[in-house]
């Protein structure tokens, strides 16, 4: 019963987050004083001079409003928008590469971002927590202290500096990895998988290195505190082997807040990915977003923003679903 209640409340929260996110992305641009259509027409007039008649201009205005989904009152627009975006996943055509639909661009870019982020988040979480656990559990050993220093040194470096340093070292000076991502489209062959790994390695490494320092520090603090818990002390007094105390007693308990932290940090990681993709010209959602902003492609911008909201919320929701598996206090009563 408790489990169902928990899952139910998480699902409601998930839907609420999506709804609020989608609503804000709808209203925010519409609250701006500038009207994109008037702006577009003014731009056209500048280029074409006085060759457009007022009638043609009105006709154009109506056409553009329909195209942008700006017809009718705000409420009508909103219902129309929700209907299209949520139910049909239709963000309209890309304005820059008219008439290719925005959804098509997103579907091509999404796997790249999800793959890069998924792999690097998991790896940096595992490495960071493993080192943090060792550093917290064997806090007297020199090995652990060294590891902790690594975390302390890496953590405060701004991501873009770290990434640029790595690019400079590995892609420019040593030339082990390409400076920017170039992968030819085509069927998924073994060769292509190799190319993907070769091209994604450096971007993934920057994300892993940037992420695991924080994991080391927080896991170290948690493991150190958990070590003093009465059940850990009692396990030691029972004569349980230190290794088992570390895994079954300290790790199992210290990992719970770390999983919550992972859910909370996914949003930030997504921002990091935006930078990564720009720095490495990696063909993911972040690069798409930048292209959209750079070329004033409103529909594409909407699309990428909404997809990022959905991805972050979904990832957090999945972590919430995993939580009862590792904490029986949520699963059972």
């Amino acid at each position: 019963m408790k489990l169902l209640q928990y899952l139910g409340s998480r699902f409601v929260a998930y839907i609420a987050v999506l709804f609020i996110g989608v609503t804000i992305t709808f209203f925010l641009p519409r609250l701006m004083p500038s009207d994109p259509i008037e702006g577009y027409i003014a731009q056209m007039q500048n280029q074409a001079g006085q060759t457009i008649t007022p009638e043609a201009m009105d006709e154009l205005r109506v056409q553009l409003r329909r195209l942008y989904g700006l017809e009718g009152s705000l409420v009508e627009q909103y219902i129309n928008y929700i209907n299209k975006v949520v139910l049909q996943f239709d963000f309209g055509p890309s304005l820059y590469s008219y008439p290719r639909p925005v959804a098509e661009f997103i579907w091509t870019a999404l796997p790249w971002t999800l793959g890069l982020l998924g792999v690097s988040i998991v790896i940096s979480w595992i490495i960071g927590n493993f080192i943090g656990l060792l550093a917290g559990f064997f806090h007297n050993s020199r090995f652990a202290t060294t590891l902790e220093v690594v975390g302390v040194v890496i953590y405060p470096i701004p991501y873009y500096i770290l990434a640029l340093l790595l690019i400079l070292q590995f892609a420019y000076i040593w030339q082990w990895f390409p400076l920017s991502t170039t992968i030819r489209p085509g069927p998924l062959t073994w060769e292509k998988v190799n190319a993907i790994i070769y091209n994604s390695f450096l971007p993934a490494m920057t994300l892993i290195i940037a992420g695991f320092g924080w994991n080391i520090l927080s896991m170290k603090a948690l493991a150190f505190a958990t070590k003093e818990e009465p059940y850990v002390v009692f396990a030691r007094l029972k004569g349980v082997k230190p290794r088992r105390i570390m895994t079954r007693y300290v790790f199992r308990n210290a990992t719970l807040p770390q999983i919550t932290a992972l859910a909370l940090s996914i949003g930030t990681i997504f921002n990091g990915a935006l930078l990564t993709e720009i720095l490495f010209s990696y063909p993911g959602l972040g690069l798409l977003m930048r292209t959209a902003i750079g070329s004033g492609d409103f529909n594409l911008m909407y699309g990428t923003i909404i997809v990022s909201i959905v991805s972050v919320a979904t990832a957090a929701f999945f972590i919430d679903l995993i939580y009862p598996l590792i904490d029986p206090r949520i699963r059972l009563r």
Binding site: E229, P230, Y231, V232, V233, F234, A235, L237, K238, G239, V240, K241, R244, R248, Y249, R252, N253, L256, I326, D327, P328, R329
Partner: peptide, 24 residues
Amino acid sequence: SYIPQSSMSSLNPVVKIRKQFVDF
């Protein structure tokens, strides 16, 4: 053997008691 002072919190909350009974 030892019965600790804070015996209320001396059992690992995320592991079944069965396992804690024999893991030493």
